[in-house]
Design a binder for these strands. Structure first.
Lengths: 336, 336
DNA sequence: CTGTTAGCGCGTTCAT
DNA sequence: ATGAACGCGCTAACAG
């Protein structure tokens, strides 16, 4: 069923049908209703390829994330998807953690714009934007000061989140810290690491041991924790770059007779739904991921509507104190 | 950059360029290499919309799942994506748990085929396939006997998984069972419930209490467990329809002085990565989700290549016994 | 307000 | 082995 047949059935020209679809106000109410009736009756939908070829846009947005198997990115995509779908865009999901894969596989002409959670795998500002010809919005986890002015993005202040977590543990009296970092070199990882290093640069009276584990391999995190515990100067607090790793670490501790939080405080990152229900429940750092996704989508839609101006939106991170920390710091305790 | 410019640069006609791309063997090696050189030099990629309009296919596959925020479906999509991308297809992800939303929003002409994890929200065989005009493959969790012959699908034997779990608990000596079901009416849920009912229909000496909780609301599962524990005839074993709910339930138990597994055995479903690391680690039922996704994609590709025959592939489920069960049943114990 | 028509970029006969 | 020309379905001037 194509536009010509609709035109024939409605007894008008293709142009009128086309207008009826795209600029209804330019068609008299009578013919418009008539045409709409016909289209409904035969269940007509314009061929998207033809439309794209003619107009130059595709009505689809590409969401790039490093992996689907991660609560954080899922929430991002769900958020974006909700907004984009409302605006009648299709959502193409591309998950890869390889920049080569990305450049090789992504055909920019099949989409009108992109939302890129670059934190995943794009680790050079220049490379980052080199060949992208369509409007895009980045979702990042960066510190405010880093924010470039010529790019539109939404971000949560990961850097601050890390520092809040560490500062909290510090005020609880910890001076020897074990940090379980993700082992990749994603932007988000490097930012968090930097936040850690910067923190300990300040605190002269602290000791830091950072170990690395693959973000999706919990056994790796478990072993990493083991390494920390065998250190001569054993940490009294552990900060893990995501909740899952924190939970794996916790297993190691409990299995080796180290009490949480009495002997060891633990802080995670992300506020995975399960964090509230493990025992003891996990203290963690949380960012509004779904809203980040929504916001990115809205900014992109603005751009697609011709608003060239580059904006950025910062979302706050927050400390959620639960049972893996002792929660003695007064100012936080009052809020619990 | 379009095909005409390439033709001009290469000093040939557009037809030759087109052939060079789509039927290379029909072009002399010399001109072919020449043209390929030009295309590489200017980084030419054929316009996908034009190609679609002309050929009638889009080189994109739609994956339909009820939600992204669920490990199970993520793994499915990741698996499919890997295969499809290899075959040069784009992957459109559509996550919705509303069948209306699905019919309203999905334009079948923008895809060549679909992979539908119908377990999510499509709950009537007839409705299921009514208007779908493109090749599709279903990913289901059904019992073998149910499998229709005219549809291609991959499935894991959820029914058997549930029965294995219950049978195991039964052999451990449990006679009063608490089952925490997901509260929705998805196919997968109804199948699992049926498996439960069928099981207890057989075992005359057992008592069953089934409670429901929203699959993504762990507090709900926690409360549901509370309900079970306040029952006059308190269960001695709990089976939850997914691992997360099982973990939430476990929290309730431990917090109320009920020891796991001594006083209460728990079995989950899905083998979420975190299941091995909570304390005690969760016994569960596992299906090879990633492979399910891959397999579905392969079957779809076959269909797209013209193989009309409907096949189905069954994947086995398996019991993973960990620390929330007492593991006294001899035949299983030997395998641990 | 409506109709005619020329592209959009590519694949594909049909000639040569 | 190669080229000229038409058509895929739709939009957007332009003309009326």
């Amino acid at each position: 069923m194509n536009i010509r047949q609709i035109a024939y059935l409605a007894g008008v020209s293709v142009a009128t049908v086309s207008r009826c679809i795209n600029q209804p106000e330019k068609v008299s109410e009578e013919t418009r209703n008539h045409i709409i009736g016909v289209m409904k009756r035969v269940d007509y939908i314009p061929n998207p390829s033809a439309k794209s070829l003619s107009t130059g846009y595709t009505k689809t947005i590409l969401c790039v994330i490093p992996t689907l198997c991660n609560e954080f990115f899922n929430q991002l995509v769900e958020g974006s998807q909700a907004v984009l779908r409302e605006a009648d865009y299709k959502v193409l999901v591309f998950s890869t953690d390889s920049i080569e894969d990305f450049w090789r596989r992504v055909d920019q002409r099949s989409v009108d714009g992109m939302i890129i959670s670059g934190s995943g795998f794009i680790n050079s500002e220049e490379l980052r934007m080199a060949k992208i010809q369509v409007p895009y919005v980045l979702i990042e986890n960066m510190e405010q000061s880093e924010s470039p002015k010529d790019v539109t993005y939404v971000y949560s202040d990961d850097y601050k989140g890390v520092q809040m977590a560490l500062e909290y543990l510090y005020r609880e009296g910890n001076r020897v810290f074990g940090v379980i970092s993700t082992s990749d070199t994603y932007l988000v990882t490097e930012r968090r690491r930097k936040a850690v290093y910067d923190f300990f640069m300040e605190k002269k009276d602290c000791r830091l041991c950072m170990v690395k584990a693959h973000y999706a391999d919990l056994q790796d995190a478990y072993d990493a924790c083991g390494h920390l515990m065998r250190l001569e100067e054993r940490p009294t607090a552990i900060f893990a770059f995501n909740d899952m790793m924190a939970i794996a670490a916790m297993r190691y501790l409990v299995l080796h007779g180290i009490r949480v939080p009495e002997d060891m405080e633990i802080m995670g990152f992300d506020d995975n739904p399960v964090a509230s229900f493990v025992l003891p429940s996990l203290s963690t750092v949380v960012a509004p991921n779904y809203q980040l996704g929504e916001s990115a989508a809205r900014l992109l839609l603005e751009k697609l509507r011709g608003n060239a101006e580059s904006k950025s939106v910062l979302f706050p991170v927050e400390l959620k104190l639960r049972e893996t920390t002792r929660n003695n710091v007064k100012e936080y305790r009052d809020k619990l």
